[in-house]
Design a protein around this nucleic acid. Structure first.
Lengths: 143, 143
DNA sequence: TTCGGTGCAAAAGATTTGCATATGT
DNA sequence: ACATATGCAAATCTTTTGCACCGAA
C-alpha cells in the first residue's frame, strides 16, 4: 500500500473541514508515514528539521493532533511523559521493553472478551482502554 | 485495621534508612491513609493545607515518593497528566469513568494468565503492567 | 552538633497559546 | 481579499531541584 491512499484521506478530511492543504502538513504526514510508528512530535520535528529548517515544532505538534482528528494517527502514552503517535490500524495493545525502548504490538480476543464482561458487570460502557506490559525483551535479558 | 500498622511500617522504614521522623511526614501519611485512595499530591496538599498552612507542596510531593519507596503507596497514572497514589494492596487494575472520574478496581486471573502467555510468546520478562478501561459508569449513562 | 528535612522560588520538560505575519483558496 | 496556518516567544501545568534555614536525634 503506497502512501497515496493516506494522503488522499488527509486531503478529503482537510476539504471537509475547511482546512488548508499546506506544504508543512504534507511534509509532516510524509515523515509520519515513513516512520516506524510510535514516534513523538519531537521525534518527527527532529527528523524533518534537517531537510526543512524553517518548520516550527509548534506546527508539528498541531499537525499530529490534526492527523488524529482525521483518523490517520492514534495517540499513545507509555509512561515516560511523551505522547507518541502510530499509524491508525486495527486495535491492539503493547509490550514495552523498559531497557531498550522496543515496542511490540499484541492482540488477544480472550482479553478483549474478558474486559467486556468485567465492564458489563460493573455497569460501565467502555469507550477505550490502555493495556501495556512493561518488562525486558529477550535481547536485553541476554546482556 | 487501624492506621497504627501502617505508621509502624513507615517508622521501621525510616529507621532502616537513616531518615527522620518528622511532623510533616506524619501529617501527610495520616491524610493519605484517610483518603479514599487515588489521590494526587496536589489533592493531599490542598486537604492538609487548611489545618497546616505552613506545609509546603514540595514536601508532599517528596513524601509521597518516600511512601512509595517504603512500600506503603503505589503510583498510578490515569491519562490526565496527574500522578495519583493509592494504598498499596493486592494487584488489580482499573475502570475509570471519564465523565465523573469514578475509579473502580477489578482483578481477573484469566487476564493475568493470558498476559503471561503473551509475554512468554514474545520473549518478554514482564515487571509490571497497566490495564485501564475508560468509559461511562452506570450513573453517568443515565443522565 | 550534625545531617537530613523543609519551604520557597526557580528550573524543567512536554505541550499549548497569543499574536503578528505569511499563505492557501 | 479573507480566513486559516505558521513560527516564534511566552505561558501552562505538573513535578523536580537549588539553596538557605530549620529541626530531629
Amino acid at each position: 500500500m503506497s502512501h497515496e491512499f493516506e494522503r488522499e484521506t488527509l486531503n478529503r478530511y482537510l476539504g471537509e473541514h475547511n482546512l488548508k492543504h499546506t506544504r508543512q502538513r504534507e511534509i509532516i504526514l510524509e515523515a509520519f508515514l515513513e516512520s516506524k510508528g510510535h514516534v513523538s512530535s519531537e521525534d518527527l520535528y527532529q527528523t524533518i528539521r534537517s531537510d526543512n529548517p524553517r518548520i516550527g515544532y509548534t506546527t508539528v505538534y498541531r499537525t499530529m493532533k490534526l492527523l488524529v482528528e482525521a483518523g490517520l494517527a492514534e495517540e499513545r502514552n507509555f509512561d515516560d511523559g511523551v505522547t507518541r503517535y502510530e499509524i491508525e490500524h486495527e486495535h491492539h495493545d503493547h509490550l514495552v521493553c523498559t531497557l531498550c525502548g522496543k515496542i511490540v504490538e499484541f492482540e488477544s480476543a480472550l482479553i478483549e472478551k474478558t474486559q467486556s464482561d468485567i465492564a458489563e458487570r460493573h455497569g460501565f460502557n467502555i469507550l477505550r482502554h490502555r493495556h501495556e506490559l512493561y518488562g525486558h525483551c529477550a535481547a536485553c535479558r541476554d546482556d
